[in-house]
Amino acid sequence: MKLKGLIILFIVMIFSVSLKAQENSNPIFPKMGKTDTIRVTSTNDNGVMIPWMQLNEVSIYAARIWKSPQEQAAFNRLRYNVLKVMPYALFAKRRYEQLERDLLTAPEKKDQKNLVKQCDKEIKDMFNREIKDLTITQGQILTKLIDREVGRTTYDIVKQTKGGFAAFSYQIIARVVGHNLKSTYDKDEDRDIESIIRSSGFYQ
């Protein structure tokens, strides 16, 4: 009797597994409505297809409480300066990324030098038009933001594109007027700047 019972139990287990396999082989899809025209990803959950789609990241910020009117005024000045120079940092990012792509498709050193010169000219033209009028504080913020966007300091970029001597020379000039081309960006140290950027709409 015991052997017969084990055999029956074994058959039942096989039968149930077979049924489950059949259920999974014919998944159940949700019914489509007349206006359901957007294709989305779905996941098979025990034979039932569950549609889902990835949503964009949503940042929630609490209302900031200021310790004093002076602190709020300082933050407002910082916000103005960040929004002033952020477009230049984004331009540097796009232009530098474009230069790297162009250099990969230009095996000849002569062509590479021409690409670097063209990039340098575009940045200099923008400098002569707009960046030269930035304040010392705005320039300091800009060097930090370039490191944030490009992932490399302004000093490293100049060193790669124009050589170590040029980077050294530019750094000396920058230090005279209160800048540091080696400035790096730290999300914790520069949390106010990060907060301003995240709430500014530049990445929407």
Rank of each mutant, 00 (worst) to 15 (best):
N56R: 15
G164Q: 14
N26W: 00
Y203W: 03
M1I: 13
F165N: 15
K84V: 05
G139V: 01
L104H: 12
N180L: 09
D45P: 11
I146Q: 09
G139E: 00
A166W: 06
I193H: 01
R175N: 11
S199V: 09
P87M: 00
I11P: 00
I38G: 03
F91H: 12
S169Q: 15
G139C: 07
Y203S: 12
V58W: 09
F127C: 09
L115G: 09
V85P: 04
L78D: 00
Q140K: 12
F29E: 07
A92R: 09
F168E: 10
R129A: 04
R152G: 02
I196G: 10
R129H: 09
L9M: 12
G47A: 08
Q160P: 10
L78Q: 04
D190N: 14
K67G: 14
D188H: 15
L181M: 04
L90P: 10
D102K: 15
H179C: 07
P30D: 05
L104F: 01
P27A: 10
F168C: 07
N76K: 14
F165V: 15
K110E: 04
D111P: 07
E23L: 13
R191T: 12
K84F: 00
V40D: 06
P27L: 10
L103K: 10
P27K: 12
L115F: 08
T153H: 06
I173N: 14
F10K: 14
L181E: 04
F168T: 15
P87S: 00
R191D: 00
I193R: 07
D125W: 04
S200T: 11
K162P: 06
V85M: 05
Q98F: 03
C119Y: 01
I50L: 02
G5E: 13
T154I: 07
A167L: 06
